[in-house]
Simulated assay, not measured.
Amino acid sequence: MFDTKAVILVLDDLAIWQKLNVTAFLATGLASAAPEAMGAPYEDASGRVFARLLGQPVLVFAATPEDLRRAHRVSGEKGLLTAAYVRAMFSTGHDAANREAFKAEPADAPDLVGIAIRGPKKDVDKATKGAKLHP
């Protein structure tokens, strides 16, 4: 049904609140960078309008550090839409500080705790090879 795939990989050994926080931030990264992937607004039976959601499923994987490194490498090689979250961002308090923390990471080996990818199915599958769906 979809010619693209959207995934989020989250480091498995994070605290639950960290996993949820990283997943939420990464989902917004995909949504903002791929407006064509957004569905129409939702409306309830009373006519109240709710925000649009991504129009395709997003698979969430429990990742090892190696899974994150592979996803980072392959997403760069294939030019896939990518959002990333590094460990240092847990210690910041606002968006500008997050961007500074992210920029301070080594480009070839950031301390990733999460990564989101969207692109052609076969390329995303290659980037997530070996990762397990989050339980």
Rank of each mutant, 00 (worst) to 15 (best):
A84G: 07
E105I: 03
N21F: 12
A109C: 13
D125A: 09
E43P: 06
L80Y: 00
N21Y: 10
S75Y: 01
A51K: 15
A34S: 11
L133C: 03
K103T: 13
P35V: 00
S46D: 15
S75P: 02
K122D: 11
V124A: 02
V86N: 03
G93A: 10
G76M: 07
K121D: 06
L54Y: 02
V60M: 09
A107P: 12
M1P: 07
A97C: 10
M1S: 07
R118Q: 05
I16P: 09
L11H: 07
R69L: 06
A24F: 05
L68T: 01
L53I: 12
L14R: 00
E105Y: 05
A45H: 13
P41H: 14
R52K: 14
T128D: 03
D67C: 12
S32T: 09
S91Q: 13
L11Y: 03
V74R: 04
Q56P: 05
V10Q: 03
L26F: 02
R52E: 15
A34G: 06
P135G: 11
G39R: 12
F2A: 10
Y42W: 11
H134F: 10
S91V: 09
A37I: 02
K5V: 07
F90P: 03
Y85N: 04
L20A: 13
F50G: 05
G79K: 07
T128M: 08
M89Y: 04
A127H: 01
D44I: 08
A31Y: 00
S32P: 07
Y85G: 02
D123K: 07
V124I: 04
D44C: 12
A101V: 06
D125T: 06
S91H: 13
E100R: 09
L26D: 02
H134W: 10
M1W: 02
K122H: 08
K129W: 04
V60C: 11
T82L: 04
A63D: 02
A24P: 04
P41S: 14
K132F: 06
H94M: 09
T4I: 06
K121P: 01
G114W: 00
S46C: 15
A109T: 12
V22E: 00
